[in-house]
Structure formats: C-alpha cells, structure tokens
C-alpha cells in the first residue's frame, strides 16, 4: 500500500472537509468500515478507500439538553437541545453524528429507522497564527428528502 492511499484518520477528515464520505473496503472479504480502518474489522486485511452513498437509517439517538462543550459553544443548551445519533449506512457500517433537520425538543416524535442522509458539519477548534478560524469537519445526518 503506497503512503498516498494509506487509510488514515487525517485523510478521512480531509475527505470530510471536501464533503466526501470515504469509508474503507476490504479487498479480500469486501467488508466496509466507517469510520475507515486500515485493517478490516472482519478479517484484518489491509483496506482501501471507497466513497460511500451517504444514505442510511437512524438506529438510536438522544436529544441532549446538557451538552458536550463542543456543542454548547455552538449555542445548544437546556432550552435548545441537539440530537446525538447513531446511524447505519446502506453499506452496513454505523457511525455517530449530530442529527439536524428534526424537532430536537420533541424526541418522542423522531422515528427509529428513519432514512437519513449525510451532511457535513463544521466546528471551530482554534485559530491559526493570523487569527483565522480553524475548523474540523464531521459527519452529521438529516432526514432524507
């Protein structure tokens, strides 16, 4: 495996910043992992990058009223909760992300197994030397349109 194609965390996040959802696919057993893994989670063969459909279903979630600092910094609070979700992608792999486009304060009305699609959400994590914001990009979800 050339350095260029190596499955690494940094490359995964760089793909996300380009709004590309890249998982890893095992050339031997064809299992797909997301978040990607260099070693296939089923057979430990060396995996390769694969672009995913970005479509999946909601497996479980919570509307969070007392949030993680990364979320309270975005203005979420007791009166304005956000949804932490675990979704299974059509390719079989599961990943966590914020679920947007739903009524966060009415969690009973958010349906399990609802079809979702990936959105790309950014969080400011710091500033560079010139004072420009530095962002990281994460997977999020919204209901399929």
């Amino acid at each position: 495996m050339s350095e260029e194609n190596l499955v690494t965390v940094d490359k995964y996040f760089n793909f996300l910043s380009e709004k590309k959802l890249m998982g890893s696919k095992c050339p031997k057993c064809e299992h797909i992992d997301l978040p990607p893994r260099r070693l296939c989670s089923k057979c430990l063969s060396e995996s390769e990058w694969i672009e995913l459909s970005g479509k999946g279903v909601l497996k479980t979630f919570s509307s969070i009223y007392v949030g993680a600092k990364a979320m309270t910094q975005k203005g979420y609070n007791r009166k304005k909760p956000y949804v932490f979700a675990v979704c299974q992608m059509d390719e079989g792999c599961s990943v966590s992300g914020q679920l947007i486009g739903v009524e966060e304060d009415k969690p009973k009305e958010i349906p399990f197994d609802m079809p979702v699609q990936v959105v790309y959400l950014k969080t400011q994590t710091g500033e560079d030397k010139e004072g420009n914001p530095i962002y990281r990009w994460d997977v999020g979800f919204e209901p399929q349109k």
Binding site: S62, I64, V66
Partner: peptide, 20 residues
C-alpha cells in the same frame, strides 16, 4: 476522535442505549 464532535456525552451515550 469520532464520538465527541458528534455531540456524545456520557449521559447521552447511555440515553441512546435507553432509547434503543
């Protein structure tokens, strides 16, 4: 690496288990 910026907290993770 993957959960925290999705908004996971410990109550939130166990809440997701409870909800399921």
């Amino acid at each position: 690496t993957y959960e925290y910026f999705a908004g996971a907290t410990f109550p939130g993770l166990y809440a997701a288990i409870a909800n399921a």
